[in-house]
Simulated assay, not measured.
Amino acid sequence: MRVLKIVPFCLMFILIGCGPQSNRSKDAMPPLMKMDSARGCVSESNLLAAGLIGGQVVQKADPDSNFAVLIISGGHICTASPIRDNVLLTAAHCFDKDKLSDTVAVFYPSLSCESGYDKRQHSVPALSVAIHDDFKSDVQIDKTEGDMALVFLSSKIPDNYPIYKVGQPSNIAAGSDLVLYGYGRTNSNGGGSGILRKIHVGSDNYVVSELNKRVVINQSQGSGICNGDSGGASLVTNRDGEMQILGISSYVTGPTEDVCSAMGVQTLASTYNDWIERIIAEQGNANPIPNPEPNPEESR
């Protein structure tokens, strides 16, 4: 059984190349893709060559097309969720501490050119990224804690994006499914990154462990998380009928030939709620800041 960090999908069409980093494997790296340099989009055939495994594609017209946010940092794709008007919650392992300054959030369900994505309209740069002190990037992912990060944006999220609360496991409605949204691959060896997908995981296929600070997902039935879904939230319904964040996708385990096929593991978000609130208070960005004035040069 192999343990693998859910490697953020490497955007080699942005970088010249992505070398292997600590706890990241060469076999998870995608082929070179051709990018439209002006719009920042990729042809759909490239994105789909060869996400959430077993997931359903979320189209722009779908009512839940705004339920997750795509993060690009250091040339890699991850998934995130808004918890304030300009703060996103995601995974710590999505970031290289030397490349935080190029982090952007994408508010669109697909990077494909056919979908209408245009980075000049649909992306927002990050002001800063806060990574939990307990997270150790040089330690095997299942041996470290604190795989949690906050992204502070340079402007508030679009008005039609929901802001989620972090839920308490004790308040989950009986029999609540996990609802997962992610921009990751559709299987361990295939394509699919850069397109938002969703799945439902039944209550008998996940376990919450407050002691281990984990949400463990049984992926043996062909549904779950994979490369690029890192940082994406599992949403559950609480006893008041509100959708809240339960876990943040961290890593997968499985045989070498199909590492996403056995078990998905998320960091239990509620165990880090004190850290989340403290960092937001310290950053002083708990309230939204105005959207910047449009740059005429960028619209040409």
Rank of each mutant, 00 (worst) to 15 (best):
R24F: 02
V124I: 15
T267Q: 10
S223F: 11
G190F: 07
Y164W: 00
D27P: 07
G232M: 07
S37H: 15
D118V: 04
C41E: 01
L89F: 04
R278D: 11
V124C: 12
N273I: 00
P82R: 08
K213M: 07
I83A: 00
S299L: 13
P292I: 06
Q168S: 14
T144E: 00
A92V: 06
N212V: 03
G55F: 05
R300N: 12
L150F: 04
P255S: 09
S22Q: 07
P63N: 13
E44I: 13
C113I: 03
N287K: 15
S81G: 08
G190T: 03
E297M: 12
G284H: 03
N66L: 03
V151R: 07
C78F: 08
N86P: 00
N212F: 03
H132I: 08
S188V: 01
D102I: 01
M243K: 15
L15D: 08
V179D: 15
N46A: 15
L32H: 00
P63R: 13
V87R: 11
P294H: 07
C260L: 02
D159M: 04
I141Q: 05
A233I: 08
C41H: 01
A149G: 06
I280D: 11
I141K: 04
Y108H: 13
L178G: 06
I276G: 04
R300C: 02
L47C: 02
G224H: 01
D118R: 01
F67S: 15
P109N: 05
A149K: 05
Q56I: 04
S110C: 03
G17L: 04
E242L: 11
A105W: 07
A262D: 13
A91G: 01
P158E: 08
S220A: 09
Q283G: 15
R84N: 12
S193C: 10
V265W: 02
G191R: 10
S249V: 02
V216I: 14
T256V: 15
T186D: 12
Q244H: 13
G51H: 02
F152Q: 08
D64H: 01
N291A: 14
R278L: 13
E297D: 15
I77P: 11
V151C: 02
G194R: 00
K198W: 10
R239M: 13
G247L: 09
D147H: 03
S223N: 13
P109M: 06
L4V: 08
L111R: 09
L48I: 15
N218K: 06
M29G: 00
A38F: 14
S22H: 11
E298R: 13
V69I: 04
P290A: 12
I248F: 06
G17Y: 07
D159I: 11
E282N: 15
P20N: 14
Q59C: 13
N189G: 14
L47V: 06
G241I: 10
T267M: 05
G19I: 01
Q221E: 13
A92S: 05
V179F: 11
G146I: 00
G224I: 09
L88V: 08
L47N: 05
R197G: 04
V87C: 05
